[in-house]
């Protein structure tokens, strides 16, 4: 049963899933740049936030929006620490390519 043309909760959840899929493909495909990796992580958190906001609007319940605020703050903290780590890596290795940080041979 396909969803109709008027936007329902299913539409929003599908949009969030599509955004998450694009981000995951980007995470796999990215070999050049750790900075873009951090941006993709921001987008993943944003798609999670879209889920929170959509369900909150669907249920007319405000708790989901409060959770979205907390996720936004956590994402900001994550990007700050991630960019600081990126700068440290750049000082050591003179590059921010992902294959430059392979000491653990993972």
């Amino acid at each position: 049963m396909m969803p109709g043309i008027e936007p329902t909760l299913t539409h929003y959840l599908l949009l969030s899933a599509a955004l998450l899929t694009i981000c995951m493909v980007g995470l796999i495909a990215n070999r050049r740049n750790m900075l873009v990796l951090l941006m993709i992580v921001e987008l993943v958190l944003l798609s999670a936030n879209l889920n929170f906001v959509a369900v909150s609007a669907y249920l007319s319940d405000l708790n989901g929006q409060v959770m979205t605020m907390f996720v936004l703050a956590t994402a900001a903290a994550e990007s700050a620490v991630g960019l600081a780590l990126l700068i440290v890596v750049f000082r050591r290795r003179k590059t921010i390519g992902i294959d430059a940080v392979n000491t653990l041979k993972g």
Partner: peptide, 20 residues
């Protein structure tokens, strides 16, 4: 990935009516 997620989302009986 998207097909799996979409199947999960559209399988549920929720959210047939429009958003309030």
């Amino acid at each position: 990935m998207f097909a799996e997620l979409a199947m999960l989302i559209m399988h549920g009986s929720h959210a047939r009516e429009a958003m309030p």
